[in-house]
Design a protein around this nucleic acid. Structure first.
Length: 636
RNA sequence: GGCCUCGUAGCUUAAUGGAUAGAGCAUCUGACUACGGAUCAGAAGGUUGAAGGUUCGACUCCUUCCGAGGUCACCA
């Protein structure tokens, strides 16, 4: 059967990926040949629309012939019939066809599917593409150091991590980084509160997780500020400001709510303490810097634990305290090259009217730099550090405007990586009650949430007892994996750009379209494979089995889609694509499990084939879920 | 106000311009003396926010409108 050896040694062949010419391109080429031979017409084959046949119809792949009719002047059904005949005669891969309302459904020969499975079965990492020579940086998480991580960070972290893994699978070399906002007024508030009200307490002395410990002092600051502000509002000074600055008909409540920031900056004693702290920090006062280092150290220790719990790590951390002065020299250079212009007051701007945006300031009139300037410098620094040709910023969509401006400026500055910049903008996470608001205490804490899903998994496990005979440590690992799978999958199955409503009750679901459902399919497979290995069954002997049942065909088709799915997810920076694929594959396997006996199959070839099919499915599920940052348990 | 995003079943959501809009949850009904029932099968649930337009064909593209949100800082 020479056709198969030819197909299996395509130009992309490597140690990792299954690489025969895709069936779709085989079909497309066949259609091109048909047009030449039947109608004497040249055709752009890539324009032929080939898609997976919908379940309710007979066949594996479908050609939509409508767009082709105007080239021949034939009716859709007639053209489809002629093409179908031609393809079945000419292509060994195609064994049958049928035509329904202008759709040409093609059936792929069983022998082709059978060979596909055997070939994939030999690969160590089906779906992993060979290195493509490109290097990409993914920035994600990037928290402030005054508070612990919350639900929003979790979505960010999961998206960033998964995106990085998917790019790796697609052949990129990936560098994971984050920028930690370790300076500024917010951090100073925590410092002031700890200094004044902490009485020397430490995370160790209180037994509180260290980032939460620091967060409590941030809250403490706000708590102390409130009565101070109330008192001031009632005072003559406060009333005078209200009379002078309130808009016509604005109630005191509304005015003072809006005025709060200004109050803290200009009138508050506590606020003054914080801004003094910031000034001392900027001046490099040793005592202040020591305090800052101590408290940030606590925060990092806590963050590190959360990252570990979530199973993520970074290659390099950038700190704003080290990068916030960067970018000014690049602005200076851009100024000389006409990329920016200086106003009379000394401030420097970028004119972005060319892309329909308002002017963007990059240097204040007092000569200091802004956020955008800093990001310009950081991007440049990163390029120097790693030489990446792509940079992906995983940041909430509230910063769309900022990144649009930043990318445009970097482009105009002629930065070498400028064409490879991408803002992976994700939607905010809301609760069923509405937005999370730290002031109202409705923020879902990351550590609490993780603990909660694990407890839920523990409850579920105790109701079953399959893992009861395992050691405590093994049980604990399984419970963690199951709980985290529920949480992670629940978040990552939603397209990044969509705002999502996070219902804690649904996030711990373990049935239906969930992480544990997929894990369960894997665990079943694992049980079968272990038994087969104990009995020394050779899966390759399944190649003799070719009379596929519908459930087997469905699974083969889906397995075949895996590399394309990874490419699609990588190009679209969209992990939800992989999540949905994994679910769909697990569902197809559950169906097969129900419909057909595997170990007790009708004959040895069928048994070996189904074991091989199961094993490959298990491998793909494990690899696919790993791309989402989800670990598989061996039992559950 | 300018720019941008979103609107799909009660809820959470899927669908490179293609066939009867696909799942899960919740509700109801079935299926374990076959390899793990965290499963499978079935029922019910939709004028895809509204109205036009382009197209052989529109959830998808265009226009207008309605609704929700974001952003337009010498904040980060």
């Amino acid at each position: 059967m020479p056709i198969f050896t030819k197909k299996f040694s395509g130009s992309m062949s490597g140690p990792f990926i299954y690489s025969m010419d895709s069936i779709i391109s085989v079909i497309q080429k066949g259609v091109g040949k048909a047009f030449k031979s039947l109608y004497q017409q040249e055709l752009d084959e890539t324009q032929v629309l080939v898609q997976v046949t919908r379940k309710e119809f007979e066949g594996d792949y479908t050609i939509v012939v409508f767009p082709l009719t105007r080239l021949t002047g034939k009716k859709p059904d007639e053209l489809a019939q002629e093409l179908g005949n031609f393809l079945v005669n000419e292509l060994e891969e195609i064994s049958a066809f049928n035509v329904i309302k202008g759709f040409l459904n093609l059936t792929v020969a069983n022998v082709y599917w059978g060979a596909f499975l055997q070939e994939v079965g030999k690969l160590a990492h089906y779906g992993q593409f060979p290195p493509n020579g490109h290097k990409v940086m993914v920035e994600f998480c990037s928290p402030n150091t005054n508070k612990p991580l919350h639900l929003g960070h979790i979505r960010n972290i999961l998206l960033g991590w998964s995106c990085a893994r998917i790019l790796e699978a697609a052949g990129y070399e990936v560098v994971r980084v984050q920028v930690i906002n370790d300076r500024g007024i917010a951090v100073c508030k925590s410092m002031v509160a700890w200094q004044d009200y902490g009485n020397g307490a430490t995370p160790e002395s209180t037994g509180i997780k260290s980032d939460h410990f620091v967060g409590e002092y941030y809250v403490e600051f706000e708590k102390r500020l409130q009565p101070e502000y109330k008192t001031w509002q009632a005072s003559e000074a406060g009333q005078q400001v209200y009379r002078e600055k309130a808009k016509e008909g604005q109630s005191p409540e509304a005015f003072f709510k809006a005025f709060k920031n200004q109050y803290v900056n200009e009138y508050s004693e506590l606020g003054k303490k914080a801004s003094d702290m910031l000034l001392r920090w900027e001046a490099g006062d040793p005592e202040t810097v020591a305090l800052w280092k101590k408290m940030n150290g606590w925060v990092y220790e806590g963050f590190e634990q959360t990252f570990k719990d979530l199973g993520v790590r970074f290659d390099k951390l950038y700190y704003e305290s080290e990068t916030y002065l960067l970018g000014k020299d690049l602005v200076e250079k851009g100024l000389n090259e006409g990329v920016f212009y200086r106003q009379d007051d000394g401030s420097v701007w970028a004119d972005l009217s060319g892309i329909g945006m308002d002017p963007k300031i990059v240097i204040r009139s007092n000569g200091t730099s802004v956020y955008t300037t800093q990001d310009i410098g950081t991007a440049h620094l990163r390029y120097q550090d790693f030489g990446v040709d792509k940079m992906v910023y995983v940041v909430a969509d509230e910063q769309n405007h900022h990144f649009q401006a930043l990318f445009e400026i970097l482009k105009r500055l002629g930065e070498p990586y400028a064409e490879g910049l991408h803002h992976l903008a994700y939607g905010m996470v809301e609760l069923p009650e509405g937005k999370m608001k730290s002031r109202e205490g409705t923020v879902v804490d990351a550590d609490d949430l993780i603990a909660e899903v694990i407890e839920e998994a523990r409850l579920n496990a105790s109701e079953r007892g399959e893992v009861a005979e395992l050691s405590a440590a093994e049980q604990e690992m399984i419970i963690r994996r199951v709980g985290l799978a529920a949480l992670k999958f629940h978040i990552i199955k939603v397209q990044p750009k969509k705002w999502m409503t996070f219902d804690p009750k649904e996030s711990v679901d373990m049935q239906g379209q969930t992480g544990p459902y997929i894990q369960y399919a894997y665990v079943r497979i694992n049980g079968l494979i272990n038994r087969a290995r104990r009995e020394g069954i050779d899966f390759a002997t399944g190649s003799a089995y070719l009379d596929f049942q519908p459930a087997e065909r469905e699974l083969l088709q889906q397995l075949y889609q895996f590399p394309d799915t990874i490419q699609e997810a990588a190009m679209g920076y969209d992990p939800s694509t992989v999540a949905n694929y994994c679910y769909s594959l697990a569902k197809a396997y559950s169906k097969l499990w129900h419909d057909l006996p595997v170990f007790n199959a009708e004959d040895p070839a069928a048994k070996a084939f189904r074991l091989q099919l199961s094993r490959v499915t298990g491998d793909v599920l494990r690899f696919g879920m790993d791309l989402l940052g989800i670990q598989m348990p061996e039992k559950m």
